[in-house]
């Protein structure tokens, strides 16, 4: 899972956003050590596409999203958006690009200022950039509120605490769409919500995408949610990419052992599937301060061999629009077993 390499990237002309060799590191206090949050991630998104980023906590998916937004800027790497490299822009040059990329956050409560009215929150971008006359901005707020299923007349003047979590997330979506962005990064937008509300918001995101011609990067830990919304999925582990592909093939035929393990760990709402018969991954995600050499997944991988420790696997095409970064990928239909005996020898 070293997922270095760019074999999975498409022609630069085809894509709206192209991220090359993104690296994000944070210092650990003043110890001189650093957290390797994201190491050499490359990805791209076509216009109108939804790219899913999936992985467990600590895999760097949220950090990747924020680095694309330059919040904060990555340590190194390119973020090509249109003809600009966002990572190279500074100050005012970057600021004028802001309205074209927006973000929706995980925590609907924390992402709304409790002291501001809903209309001010939604109109924030319009006010900053002085888009339209006051009347036009007003009308835009009304339109956006209706689009996300809120009642402008009753709810414009209210403050976030008067709304439920799901409604707060609707407000966040309206705010993100207000400045007509091309790309919206959704960072775990439904993981704080109840299942029934989650479905409402996922459907709403699809509607908004169609209505406003959006391109989405959808970050989540829930594989089923990511599959539901995505056109292409990137599976991440410990700051690296494991596998990239279209959701239907990737979920049906996971090639990377980590993807397979992740899929088998999801509790299925079906009593005939006995959990004990499924493969469970041992151990926990290693520290990103000192990640394992070679393939970062090797410490937990049932298929790991010596080569995995010494050599970092490169992203390689394994089927049509299906890429994997693994020395020993699974064959289509092959299931992962808990047995590691064959490889420990």
């Amino acid at each position: 899972m070293a997922g270095t390499g760019t074999a999975h990237l498409r022609e630069p002309g085809e894509t709206l956003l192209r991220v090359e060799n993104l690296v994000v590191e944070f210092p650990v206090g003043r110890s001189g050590l650093k957290v390797n949050a994201v190491t050499n991630i490359s990805l791209d998104v076509r216009e109108g596409e939804t790219l899913g980023l999936v992985g467990e906590s600590g895999c760097g998916k949220s950090t990747t999203g924020k680095a694309i937004m330059q919040l904060p800027a990555p340590t190194s790497g390119k973020v090509l958006f249109g003809e600009h490299d966002l990572a190279a822009l500074k100050g005012e040059e970057l600021r004028v690009m802001r309205p074209r990329l927006q973000m929706i956050f995980q925590d609907p409560i924390s992402s709304l200022n409790p002291r501001r009215k809903v209309e001010d929150i939604i109109a924030e971008g319009l006010n900053i950039w002085n888009i339209g006359t006051e009347a036009e901005r007003d009308a835009k707020v009304n339109e956006l509120m209706e689009a996300v299923g809120l009642d402008p007349e009753l709810q414009r003047g209210k403050r976030p605490h008067q709304f439920s979590g799901g409604q707060c997330q609707r407000i966040s979506i309206a705010r993100a769409v207000a400045t007509d962005p091309k790309l919206i990064i959704c960072d775990e937008p439904v993981s704080a919500l109840d299942v029934s509300v989650q479905a409402q918001i996922l459907n709403l995101l699809e509607d908004m995408k169609a209505r406003y011609g959006l391109t989405l990067i959808f970050i989540a830990h829930d594989l089923a949610v990511v599959k539901n919304v995505s056109d292409r999925v990137v599976v991440m582990y410990l700051g690296k990419m494991c596998e990239v592909g279209g959701p239907d093939d990737l979920y049906a035929n996971p090639r990377h052992p980590y993807t397979a393990a992740l899929l088998s760990a999801i509790p299925v709402a079906d009593p005939s599937v006995k959990p004990s018969e499924r493969m469970t991954l041992g151990g926990e995600i290693p520290s990103p301060v000192s990640p394992p050499s070679g393939c970062r997944f090797r410490t937990r991988c049932p298929r790991a061999q010596e080569r995995c420790a010494s050599e970092e696997p490169q992203m390689q095409q394994i089927a049509e629009d299906h890429f994997v970064a693994c020395h020993f990928p699974l064959n289509p239909g092959e299931t992962l077993t808990n047995s590691t005996e064959a490889f420990t020898a």
Partner: peptide
């Protein structure tokens, strides 16, 4: 809080974030 990041993502300047978003 994420609303500060959201304001930055909208392109708000530091001054606005400090006095409009945080101070209240």
């Amino acid at each position: 809080r994420e609303f500060v990041m959201a304001a930055r993502a909208q392109g708000a300047k530091n001054f606005k974030i400090m006095f409009i978003e945080i101070l209240p």
